[in-house]
């Protein structure tokens, strides 16, 4: 199928491993996210990132975001590729931190101010408030918001100031169906806005996330030739899925197709085995 091809690298992980005080968490992770090009669309990249709880997904996210130096290896971003610095990659952390001393609107404004002039920042912040159903709460402090509202606010904050790369650590947990749809819509919008925009979604919701993705990573433990469990988790070649090449990416209503259902079942089995 020639409906898409791959160009320059956007995100590269080379031999990443991570230990905390001798405990190996991640081992030998090498990944490439390439700019996928489809004729007629500015198609960004979406990576679904799975793995058992406690396996090291959030740790890898922090490494990719440049917040945690890995024990070995490098993360490269941008074009031409260079080592990542904090701020290069937007990262919505699992517990949705916001500035507790600022109102919701202020939280968005301080983020929008990074890329926009004050007037534009105001307009952008207002736009996100409306889109995420947060407009009536603009004057509230984060402590007064519901869990889902905080989460949307945190996502909006990162979207307002991120460059091309953004990581969402469990963006669907705790949201109702309408809001999941809204977040899905926004991810689609972000990734079709610019050729280079790339979203990594950490999630336990396989169906929702896979339907959005063109690439999947599955982080899990591995056995050596003798069948012994190796310390630390990795994303082996076998566990890097190219959904686009399978012909299962970028299609609305994909979730009903037998091939998609099969893929989900396969992923579930792989995760259970881990």
């Amino acid at each position: 199928m020639a409906d898409h091809l791959y160009k320059e690298p956007i995100l590269t992980l080379r031999d990443i491993s991570m230990q905390f005080g001798g405990e190996v968490i991640l081992r030998d992770i090498s990944l490439d996210v390439l700019n996928v090009v489809r004729p007629g669309v500015s198609q960004g990249q979406v990576v679904g990132f799975y793995g058992r709880s406690g396996i090291g997904k959030s740790v890898l996210c922090r490494i990719i975001a440049g917040l945690l130096p890995p024990s070995t290896g490098t993360v490269l971003v941008a074009d031409p590729q260079r080592p990542v610095c904090p701020g290069d990659v937007g990262f919505v952390q699992q517990r949705y931190p916001l500035f507790n001393h600022r109102t919701l609107l202020d939280n968005l404004l301080v983020a929008a101010g990074r890329k926009h002039s004050p007037a534009d920042a105001k307009a952008k912040a207002e736009e996100f408030l409306t889109r995420f159903d947060l407009a009536p709460h603009r004057r509230k402090y984060p402590a007064m918001l519901s869990g889902g509202q905080r989460q949307r606010a945190a996502i909006a904050q990162q979207l307002l100031c991120s460059e091309h790369l953004i990581i969402l650590d469990e963006p669907f947990s705790g949201l109702d169906i309408a809001m999941i749809d809204e977040v899905k819509k926004i991810i689609l919008e972000v990734t079709t806005l610019d050729e280079l925009n790339t979203v990594v979604i950490v999630s336990h919701d396989l169906a929702t996330t896979t339907a959005l993705s063109d690439t999947l990573w599955l982080l899990g433990p591995e056995r050596d030739a003798a069948g012994q469990l190796l310390p630390g988790a990795t994303i082996s070649k076998k566990h890097q899925y190219n959904v686009a090449d399978m012909g299962l990416a970028w299609q609305p209503g994909i979730q009903a197709k037998p091939a998609f259902v099969q893929l989900i079942e396969h992923l579930k089995d792989e995760i259970r085995k881990a």
Binding site: L67, P86, G90, F91, Q93, L98, V110, R114, C161
Partner: peptide
């Protein structure tokens, strides 16, 4: 701190 850093501060 990480939150502030990811916002490009």
């Amino acid at each position: 701190m990480d939150h502030a850093r990811t916002l490009g501060m």
